[in-house]
Design a protein around this nucleic acid. Structure first.
Length: 1166
RNA sequence: GCUGAAGUGGUGGAAUUGGUAGACACGUUGGACUUAAAAUCCAAUGGACAUUAGUCCGUGCGGGUUCAAGUCCCGCCUUCAGUACCA
């Protein structure tokens, strides 16, 4: 009987579906086991052979666990919100829900035909409103929570309000915005509702904040970093600008430490944990403030709470003396005016000869930002400079009014009147600071506070906000040029180019907290604005980048390490550090010195110990249509949550999926998108309806126009699978308590820092809120590798003329393609040294090509053109296993190739209609690349299933190599596993004419058969042992080999015994379930094989009496010798030495030493 | 630059604690069956010399440890992936 895989597979797939064979129950006597795949995004292209790799592995494991007696949960669903469907909708007008449903149908069909044991009754789709109801619910929970650092968990926002009401926020230790102002309970009660809501937003775990984004006005959307190439959008090449936008953010930073610590408790791959650790980016050290020195004497140590009147720039220390001088010697006019302005005579505080930036102005009222200049004769020649000065000052929002000496002296009353008028018109800025008197210190974060005495300069990121304020006029040009140059370099450029050292001196100095020495302040692009404070204290002796920078700019490199040689490079080792030349920390090691320095900094009020995380809060708003709507409406600009009972807030219909004309997200196109609620009754209505409704008892307002990002729905789906149809809870407590967590999670490593970090964050949050019972949701995680495509290349002849260094391509009448061999020969000939005479001639092959160009290229070649060979992708389906191209298929592929000429391997034109014959075939070149539509190297599993069956596909994908490894797909190899299945089938059909034949052999039936059965049992148990070990180690490729060996052995043993063949089927069934089910039922079983017990390994069948010892000489194996296993060491040595082959090897030499490892090896030295 | 993974026949890959390198497949070659093809079966297949025996070389490169190294140690090279020049 033939192995009719198509029929068998269809039969059992139907059986499984009808009998719900793989339905998991939420309570069972059996232990639970949860196997999860990262659910797919259903793209329009359907599955290619790379997709099922992880699913097959997890399916094998799930089926194995069922055999082992577990209640297995193995669900599948779809991450069905996302950009591609939206793009398609924009292009075609087709609703994304429709395309998504179609794509899912294709996926489901493809998944079904591979025979996965998914429990489809638990399917979820993130775009279903019954699913995203819970996405919205979790969002509300986050909004209603804050992170209490004291209890180290998320708590209800009502707790926080209670604290505010009783004691204000001074004692609250929460993760919140940086700029939260302190208030008392009384003040809290005094705030308006809006003010209170604003304050609470600074604490909530999801909050509205201004975020800087890459905005593309043309596309009306925000772009990710990798969607921008060279400053323009990847799609369409439109300009991109940095823009501030109010968006929802997730306070994931609150969980930084726990996300880091949690990694130690889960069995994920090291590389994945490492990426997450890097992403979280914890560094422990100190924050240190360095006062900026270049300020007026007496004001330089002013610290952060700088009095508002210090408005001088960096050069104040130079200018202040002159200002004092001018104050002492006023002109007649100045003196007269000052007499009227001083002592708040005009109800405004005026200062005379005051520093504003780098200018000394005659009089200024800082509160009203009004400057009064009295111009003497000397200024007439300087009108231009004055204009510039006025411009600069007015740019800082000062108003400058000018009077001449005469005006002041002759008509003081009118001058004062003008001043009074100006004053009355200008607003008081009292509490605000007057630039540039903002920060007078540079705050840095360092992981090496112990090296603080080695600081010889400071480096700011070119983007640092202080740069413009502290740069001296002399350095301004250099610094500006440098900033401009940096801004032009892309982040990738800056990263790739580590060797170029660049920077500029600002001209300003900072003061060392301990030595009080001035430290030059530089800017350099090796310091990034986004990390820490965007400034570093540079310790060239201890940090290689600082070292290189110092060397390059001739900055001193003081050595503060005992016995360290820093003549060539920095000494970065922490452990061996002994500090020297460092005042009070001399002789200390890294740890002690760090502690002491932090202590001393705290004494000075110039620093403290600090832990820094790189992890930033995650932006949660997307200006898209095809995503979860927020359950949020706005009242007076403040967000309000919609109550749980009104969820889900369904995605509204829109006419078009593009941003509105006013630049609002696509939801702005919805006709009805206002929330209107009276008591329990609520509705989504149009703007007009809302505005015409009665305000009494009304709740509601404009609904949020953004939607949630792709990772929202995927951050908790593993919990939803436990109880997927529950309408009153995300999942019932019973279900969550029963299933707990995922035991095995398989997916691609591309999700390492996106999905896998965010979902851990949500899980921890839900754990804090008591929703889920565990705070890590996946115990073990495996990354499957990618299956790569083997692209095929044809080599097109491309002819051109070169005129004045410009290439002019010639379109050939018949396109010409050369075979791989010709291509290789031609490229080889061109590699030759250009200075040899041969290089000026074409090689033989090239001559031939040239001839053909002239023959087939058209008829008007006045002179010989040049040419090159251009590899282009051919569809892999036109190529057979021997890399031979189906020329006719290729010609029919595209109109322009219809008349193509092909030159075969031996360099002759292949005549039309005659291909794949003889030596002169056309061969393609091969290269391994990612599988992608554009490379025409995609292999579809449908064809494979049709041709070889799902069991063959499953086995072959596993057989290709280790699960985690990247490996190329080569369909040719599938014949190997397919013929294995045929052999397996045959093994059970050894009856006459290939009929099913299995014997139920009773224990003793003559010596001969017993012996044969013994051999078969040995094969079986060897296989059981190996396969069980392999599955447990996720080494699926080796178990496929083991099956092949077993079937080969049993075939040659002609084994027909049920005692062997029945357990063998259970072993194979996780890998090739269809054939296993079929043979199982032929063995007389009425139940599916899926719940059969995994066979038990019995070592007694493997006991051997002898061993074929390898006998080696000096470590090299020369021959083998069969010896009894119970032979003693000495006897073995004796027997081996007496053997004639040994004598032959030694040729009379006396062995120096004989190593005998019983049961393993014999090695003779000599 | 840093971090992680990996370099083994023509190809995918095996070798679990150091103990017979290349299992199992693909491909290739030869043969059987067949009118022929497909399918199936048998044999050979790391390289070189010898074609009987056998000898030498061989797991990215250079050293080392060991009776014995693909496996352990030191140094280097290459490829792939991730990344953030992270103070």
């Amino acid at each position: 009987m033939k192995y009719n895989f198509n029929e068998i597979e269809a039969k059992w797939q139907k059986y499984w579906a009808e009998n719900q064979t793989f339905k998991a129950v939420n309570n069972s006597e059996k232990p639970k086991y949860y196997v999860l795949d990262m659910f797919p995004y259903p793209s329009g292209a359907g599955l290619h052979v790379g997709h099922p790799l992880g699913y097959i592995a997890s399916d094998i494991y799930a089926r194995y666990k069922r055999h082992k007696g577990f209640n297995v949960l193995h669900p599948q669903g779809y991450d069905s919100f996302g950009l591609p469907a939206e793009q398609y909708a924009i292009q075609t007008g087709q609703h994304p829900a429709i395309t998504t449903a179609e794509n899912i149908k294709t996926y489901r069909r493809q998944l079904d035909q591979i025979g996965f044991s998914f429990d489809w009754s638990r399917e979820v789709r993130t775009s279903d409103s019954s699913y995203y109801k819970w996405t919205q619910w979790i969002f509300i929970q986050l909004f209603e929570s804050w992170y209490n650092n004291t209890t180290n968990k998320a708590e209800d926002i009502s707790n926080l309000i209670a604290i505010f009401e009783t004691e204000g926020n001074t004692n609250v230790n929460a993760v919140c915005d940086d700029d939260v102002e302190t208030f008392s309970a009384d003040e809290w009660h005094g705030f308006s509702s809006k003010e209170q809501q604003k304050i609470l937003l600074q604490y909530r775990l999801t909050y509205l904040a201004e975020t800087e984004v890459n905005w593309c006005p043309a596309l009306g959307t925000v772009l990710a970093n990798d969607e921008i190439v060279n400053g323009v959008s990847e799609r369409g090449g439109h300009p991109v600008i940095r823009k501030k936008m109010t968006q929802w953010s997730m306070r994931i930073s609150a969980y930084a430490e726990r996300l880091l610590q949690g990694l130690d408790t889960i069995d994920w791959t090291d590389s994945l944990k490492e990426s997450q650790r890097n992403w979280i980016g914890k560094s422990v050290g100190a924050s240190v403030s360095f006062p900026i020195l270049s300020f007026p004497i007496g004001e330089e140590k002013a610290g952060t709470k700088t009095p508002g009147y210090m408005t001088g720039g960096n050069n104040s220390h130079l200018l202040i003396e002159r200002a004092k001088d001018m104050r002492a010697n006023p002109t007649q006019a100045e003196a007269a005016l000052w007499e009227q302005l001083r002592n708040k005579n005009l109800d405004a505080k005026f200062r005379q000869q005051h520093l504003i930036g780098d200018y000394i102005v005659d009089f200024v009222c800082l509160d009203k930002k009004l400057i009064i200049e009295v111009d003497g004769k000397i200024h007439e020649s300087q009108i231009e400079e004055d204009a510039k000065r006025t411009e600069v000052l007015e740019n800082d929002y000062f108003k400058v009014i000018r009077f001449t000496n005469e005006e002041v002296l002759s008509n003081l009353e009118s001058v004062l009147k003008t001043i009074r008028e100006e004053l009355s018109q200008r607003e008081s800025i009292k509490s605000e600071q007057v630039p540039p008197s903002g920060s007078r210190e540079i705050e840095v974060f360092t992981t090496r506070p112990d090296t603080i005495f080695g600081v010889s300069f400071m480096t700011l990121a070119p983007e640092h906000e202080l740069v413009s304020q502290i740069t001296t006029p002399e350095q301004k040009e250099t610094v500006d040029a440098y900033i401009l140059a940096t801004a032009k370099r892309s982040e990738r450029d800056r990263m790739a180019d580590v060797k170029t050292i660049s920077g500029a001196f600002t001209g300003a100095y900072a003061e060392h907290p301990f030595t009080k020495e001035p430290i030059p302040i530089w800017i350099g692009d090796y310091v990034l604005a986004g990390y820490g404070t965007g400034a570093v204290m540079s310790v060239p002796c201890g940090d290689q980048r600082d070292y290189d920078f110092a060397k390059h700019f001739n900055i001193p490199i003081p050595n503060i390490f005992e016995g360290a040689d820093i003549s060539e490079e920095a000494f970065a080792d922490k452990e061996k550090t002994i500090i020297a030349n460092s005042d009070f920390i001399n002789g200390m090691n890294y740890k002690k010195a760090t502690k002491r320095v932090i202590f001393e900094l705290e004494q000075l009020g110039q620093g403290q110990g600090k832990t820094n995380y790189r992890l930033r809060d995650a932006v949660f708003s997307r200006q898209r249509y095809w995503g979860e709507p927020f359950p949020v409406y706005y009242v007076n600009g403040m967000p309000q949550m919609i109550a749980k009972e009104h969820l889900p807030i369904k995605l509204p219909e829109v006419e078009k999926y593009l941003p509105t004309e006013t630049g609002e997200p696509p939801l702005g196109n919805a006709k009805k998108w206002y929330w209107l609620q009276y008591g329990d009754k609520a509705d989504i209505v149009s703007k007009e309806e809302f505005e015409n409704s009665s305000p009494s008892g009304r709740l509601g307002g404009a609904l949020e126009l953004n939607t949630m990002p792709g990772w929202a729905g995927s951050s908790f789906y593993f919990n939803r699978y436990m109880d997927p149809t529950n309408d009153s809870e995300m999942a019932s407590k019973e279900a969550l308590d029963y299933w707990q967590d995922v035991d095995l999670y398989i997916g691609g490593s591309e999700h390492a820092t996106g999905h896998l970090l965010y979902s851990r964050f949500w899980q921890k949050f839900l754990f804090d809120k008591g929703v889920v019972p565990v705070d890590e949701y996946a115990k073990k995680l495996i990354n499957q590798g990618m299956i790569l495509g083997t692209s095929a290349f044809v080599y097109e002849v491309s002819a051109y003329y070169t005129i004045e260094n410009e290439k002019f391509h010639v379109k050939l009448k018949n396109p010409i393609f050369v075979s791989e061999n010709i291509y290789l020969k031609s490229t080889e000939s061109r590699k030759k040294d250009v200075f040899t005479p041969e290089a000026f001639k074409f090689s033989e092959v090239d001559y031939k090509i040239l001839e053909l160009i002239i023959k087939y290229g058209g008829n008007k070649f006045k002179e010989e053109p040049e040419f090159h060979l251009n590899p282009i992708h051919s569809d892999v389906s036109f190529v057979n296993a021997s890399n031979e191209l189906d020329i006719n298929a290729f010609r029919n592929w595209r109109e322009e190739y219809k008349d193509a000429i092909f030159i075969g391997e031996i360099g002759k034109v292949i005549p039309f209609g005659e291909d794949l014959g003889g030596d002169n075939v056309y061969k393609v070149g091969r290269e391994v690349e990612k599988m992608s539509k554009s490379k025409y190297n995609v292999v579809n599993p449908d064809n494979i299933c049709e041709q070889y069956g799902a069991d063959s596909l499953r086995l072959y994908e596993m057989f290709l190599g280790p699960l985690e490894q990247y490996k190329p797909w080569n369909t040719a190899g599938i014949t190997g596993v397919h013929s294995f299945l045929k052999k397996l089938w045959k093994l059970y059909h050894q009856g006459e004419n290939g009929t099913f034949y299995v014997t139920s052999s009773p224990p003793s039936e003559g010596l001969g058969e017993d012996k044969e059965l013994g051999e078969a049992l040995k094969t079986l148990h060897k296989t059981i042992k190996k396969v069980e070990e392999d599955i447990e180690n996720f080494s699926f490729n080796t178990s496929v080999s083991t099956f092949m060996i077993a079937v080969n052995e049993l075939t040659s043993q002609k084994c027909t015994s049920r005692e062997v063949l029945e357990p063998l089927l259970v072993l194979i069934s996780p890998y090739a379930p269809h054939i296993a089910e079929e043979l199982w039922s032929k063995l007389g079983h009425n139940e599916s094989i899926s719940t059969a017990c995994f066979p038990k390994f019995d070592g007694s069948h493997l006991v051997e009496s002898s061993k074929n010892y390898p006998i080696s000489f000096n470590g090299k194996m020369r021959f083998t010798l069969e010896l009894p296993l119970d032979m003693s060491k000495d006897d073995i040595e004796k027997t081996v030495l007496e053997h004639e082959k040994t004598k032959e090897q030694l040729q009379g030499r006396q062995p120096k030493k004989v190593i005998v490892v019983p049961g393993k090896i014999v090695n003779i030295v000599g």
